[in-house]
Design a protein around this nucleic acid. Structure first.
Length: 679
DNA sequence: ATAGGGTTAG
């Protein structure tokens, strides 16, 4: 044993474990050790407050304030305190700390601002980060009594150029804020300012810029920055973080092949070691395509061989892959494992269940009398790589905490699939209501739509969702877009609405396409279901419903949903939950869905009117209104064809009939031309 | 002394 080690641990105040462990752990052992002596002294007996696993920083700072605050201390003492605080406490106490610094006539330095900005950025509060940054730049480097001779104007001039100098960290925090807001322009300005201030951008800065572009769905720009990093210098060469982010970009665009190349580039050429996140991003990029299913499992296996544990998110992504492929059997197996593992950290959450419901929707299932769809064998060649390979013992009898999966290992009729999906939702609603959110219900809606469960679909749509509350709406002055609505209003026959069913998920009343009753359903769970919290609708709810209406040629339902949607456009949620490019994309999709539904119902005139109105606002492409075009051709409706020609140009039908691209609509040509940015 | 990455809409 090295003789110096025992000496070291004499300085550790609370050594509750053997010294040799302590000596090898990264010091410091306790929070109070990280604090500076003046702070500890001023805290007195309250110093004990900080040595818990989750210190009550509010109380600690209260004590401090009561005992004289920061008076007589240095700014490093404040920084020390900030460093030991978690982000949330920093955010909660920002104002108080600023107050206390002011009282003690302490000037925050760059690090003080950095630590505060970082905390606000981590908690996704970009506005506060910007405020802090502005504050930092005009921070009073000179207090009035230090320069009594200067006129106010001169002082202002000095103050505006003094302040504390931002570092590359400061700018990185600021850029993170712009990334959160998907504000590419703001990020560009900050980046330029940084360079003018002579601060060299580093990997983190570039990576944050890439993230900003991705949040804004400006994927080509993201790739440009990435390529620039590679070319610029060794110092800015992409690292594992950056590669992981670009793998995520591949997932966004369905570019699985590119993801594989990127991964090879990273590991072979750049000799970078993939992390767990890298594997996850790669698997994600493979999971979005059903033709890369084998690769998903290959890399899931490799990831495990590299010693990375499957966590909830990776398992969720694997279930996502199963859903994409239609491999419901394996999706259920994974869910069973996650539930049966007994490990808290991998029990399914809302997102995991959402993936499961998508798997119900896409399940490959025996057609009416034929064999498997496309005659493919069931997915037997895929190795199973769950968290551990032990099969969970089947539990008989219905425990309240047991997911009501069918006894059958493989569900092979649509009714079995839909029946189980419904039961699982009922079970979640009854037993784990906190997991039932909008996305989850939307996923079930999708499943019903895909399986042609039209009655179930409408019933769920009517009973599971709540209308917006008064307080959800924006003020009248906030909304400017009523012009395009008037036409739609004009052609609206009052929709005939089925009366909402009594319970959230009622039994199958008659005319549904279901033929087999759900044998396993413990029919009606108690009546509490009736008054259970509903979830709010969101844009995807409407999109799914409009798709359903299109499939079912149900125009009155489509119009009703369209009106619900127009209501939603007046809510705050519309603006807070979706960033601009996503809103735009879904708006276009919704308009086109209605246009095509009108066309399917032979109301070409109305469809054409709506198309003209929509074209005023958005660029519409021919594939978006394919149904209308085909109908118009079939009926030889010259007037409508003329409208189409004016609105979407002259491309011929066959040019889009062929191209089944993976992810048709990401083009955002308004901004695509701007390649002249300085990075 | 600080920072950037990951599950979700057929």
């Amino acid at each position: 044993m090295h003789p110096i080690l025992p000496l070291l641990c004499l300085h550790l105040p609370f050594v509750s474990f053997p010294w040799f462990v302590a000596a090898f752990l990264p010091q410091p052992e306790t929070v109070s050790e990280m604090l500076s002596a003046p702070i500890i002294e001023r805290l007195g007996s309250a110093a004990a407050l900080v040595d818990t696993s989750t210190p009550a920083w509010g109380a600690v700072i209260g004590h401090l304030e009561f005992n004289g605050g920061f008076r007589g201390m240095e700014i490093v003492d404040v920084n020390c305190l900030l460093v030991s605080m978690d982000s949330q406490s920093r955010v909660q106490n920002t104002f108080k700390l600023q107050e206390m610094m002011e009282k003690a006539k302490l000037e925050p330095d760059t690090l003080t601002y950095d630590l505060l900005m970082m905390a606000h950025a981590q908690l996704k509060r970009p506005e506060e980060v910007e405020v802090l940054f502005r504050d930092l730049k005009r921070s009073k480097g000179l207090v009035p009594e230090m320069c009594p001779d200067l006129s106010v104007v001169l002082a202002d001039a000095i103050l505006s150029t003094e302040g504390v100098p931002p570092t590359v960290f400061t700018y990185a925090h600021l850029l993170k804020a712009y990334s959160l807001k998907a504000d590419v322009e703001g990020a560009g300005r900050a980046f330029t300012e940084m360079r003018e201030a002579g601060v060299q951008p580093n990997i983190v800065v570039y990576t944050t810029l890439i993230q900003t572009c991705l949040n804004r769905r400006e994927v080509p720009t993201a790739w440009q920055i990435f390529n620039l990093m590679k070319l610029k210098s060794r110092a800015t060469a992409p690292d594992a973080h950056t590669f992981t982010l670009m793998l995520h970009a591949c997932a966004l665009e369905g570019e699985s092949e590119r993801a594989l190349n990127l991964f090879r580039d990273m590991t072979n050429r750049m000799k970078l070691k993939p992390t767990k996140e890298t594997y996850h991003a790669l698997i994600h990029a493979l999971a979005v395509r059903k033709d890369y299913y084998q690769e998903v499992w290959r890399y899931a296996t490799e990831m495990q061989q590299e010693g990375f544990k499957m966590d909830r998110k990776v398992l969720g992504t694997l279930i996502h892959a199963c859903g994409k492929r239609g491999d419901l059997t394996r999706a259920r197996m994974l869910i069973r494992h996650m539930l049966g593992s007994g490990k808290e950290d991998i029990i399914p959450d809302s997102a995991t269940y959402q993936c499961l419901f998508r798997a119900y929707g896409n399940a490959r299932v025996r057609k009416k009398r034929a064999g498997f769809v496309e005659g493919e064998p069931p997915e037997t060649s895929v190795p199973y790589v769950g968290p551990d390979t032990r099969l969970v013992k089947r539990e008989d009898g219905f425990k309240e905490d047991t997911i009501p999966f069918s006894q059958k290992a493989i569900l092979d009729t649509p009714s079995e699939v839909v029946g189980e999906a419904k039961r699982v939702m009922e079970w979640l609603w009854a037993m784990k209501p906190h997991l039932v959110d909008t996305q989850l219900v939307n996923a079930l809606l999708d499943a019903y739509c895909d399986k042609g469960r039209y009655n179930k679909f409408k019933k769920l749509y009517y009973t599971a969702f709540a209308d917006p509350k008064e307080s959800d709406y924006l003020g009248l002055t906030d909304l400017g877009l009523t012009a395009s609505n008037t036409e739609a209003e004009a052609l609206t026959p009052e929709p005939s609405v089925d009366a909402p069913a009594a319970t959230v998920m009622d039994t199958d009343a008659g005319a549904d396409m279901d033929t087999e009753p759900d044998k396993n359903t413990d029919r009606n769970l108690p009546d509490q279901l009736t008054f259970r919290e509903r979830v709010p609708r969101n844009l995807h709810t409407f999109q799914t419903a409009l798709n359903y209406a299109y499939k079912a040629r149900n125009l009155s339902f489509a119009l009703e949903v369209y009106h619900h949607r127009m209501d939603y456009l007046r809510t705050k949620q519309y603006y807070s939950q979706y960033r601009e490019p996503e809103r735009r994309r879904l708006d276009i999709q919704a308009e086109c869905s209605l246009i095509n539904t009108l066309a399917r119902c032979e109301m070409l005139g109305e469809a054409a009117v709506l198309l003209e109105a929509t074209c005023q606002k958005y660029k519409i492409y021919e594939p978006d209104i394919a149904t209308l075009h085909i109908k118009a051709l079939q009926l030889d409706d010259l007037q409508t064809l003329d409208v189409i020609k004016r609105c979407v140009g002259t491309a011929r039908y066959h040019t889009y009939a062929v191209g089944a691209k993976f992810n048709p609509r990401w083009r955002c040509e308004d901004e695509a031309g701007d390649l002249s940015r300085t990075w």
